[in-house]
Design a binder for these strands. Structure first.
Lengths: 151, 151
DNA sequence: CGCAAATCCTACCACCGTGGTAGGATTAAG
DNA sequence: CTTAATCCTACCACGGTGGTAGGATTTGCG
């Protein structure tokens, strides 16, 4: 599994907040209830989003969270990257400039690099706005036969 | 991480055997030494490949393994699927006909389904032959700007 | 026939990431 | 000054990952 609940729930929170854009600060309790997720667990996840600059928060009564930017200014890749740490499908891929010691002679590396590219390209092309608008063409394909089959 | 060492080493073994196609049966000890991997660990992985019909084996002295088909008749998806069990990037995606209970109302599901498609399409289009021939265009892109960027 | 070289099979295990829970400290509105 | 909210630190069970160990079985060859 490439994306754990941490990344999935983070995206769920971001989509929830994107839907409520303009409603001011939304409390974590509200989000957790709406999405039917553990508030305590969500707390640790939303903390990552907040520290990563994805959100604005307000403490105290009437406090909560809201998006720091417009929904179409977030791409999915950056949200998942922040929460998951990496989106690499294998751990033998170059990260932070450090590559596998066998990289020069490894015959399977180009495959993993290509897979990594495909994933990154897909996720970085989709925004929160696409998700709340249900942009099926962009999400599920038909616009590129080689990327996403038409069946 | 989507693909563990199990899947990676399985592919390494398959590529190794594809390179030696026509040389008869190749012993596990030879493969392990050539690829610099633990023979004991490789044993458990090659056993999955063998039982899954990917290989032919011969026991006893002068025994070993060889490919059951031609290198261009294996796509990478089936090799990884056999060893990893699933290639789904998240565990909330439909598997064996069973889908998440929240599927009907989940706003993020189309994203995960789209990601799954992109991955599956990439991996099922590449064969062992492509890897041993170092088919960079197919592996790393340039043939589809939306799938794999040109940088 | 018997040895050696190979696959095949079962069991075991340490480590770490996942998916949380618990409890309290701090802040701000009214 | 109470209440509702974020913020922070610590803890923990479980299962998957990445192996290791030891032997049983099969087959080629001299």
């Amino acid at each position: 599994m490439m994306v754990s609940t941490k990344g999935r729930y983070a995206l769920t929170v971001m989509v929830d907040l994107a839907r409520l854009e303009g409603d001011g600060y939304v409390s974590l309790a509200d989000i957790a209830e709406r999405e039917n997720l553990s508030m305590k667990y969500l707390e640790s996840i939303i903390s990552i989003l907040n520290k990563g600059g994805m959100l604005q928060s307000l403490r105290g009564k009437k406090g909560g969270y809201r998006l720091a930017r417009k929904p179409d200014e977030y791409n999915i890749s950056e949200i998942l990257l922040l929460t998951e740490g990496t989106l690499a499908p294998v751990n033998c891929i170059m990260q932070d400039g450090v590559e596998c010691e066998k990289a020069a002679t490894c015959s399977t590396l180009p495959l993993w690099a290509g897979l990594d590219k495909v994933i990154e390209n897909y996720l970085s092309d989709i925004t929160l706005e696409d998700i709340i608008r249900g942009n099926r063409k962009k999400l599920l394909g038909d616009y590129c036969g080689t990327c996403v089959s038409a069946n």
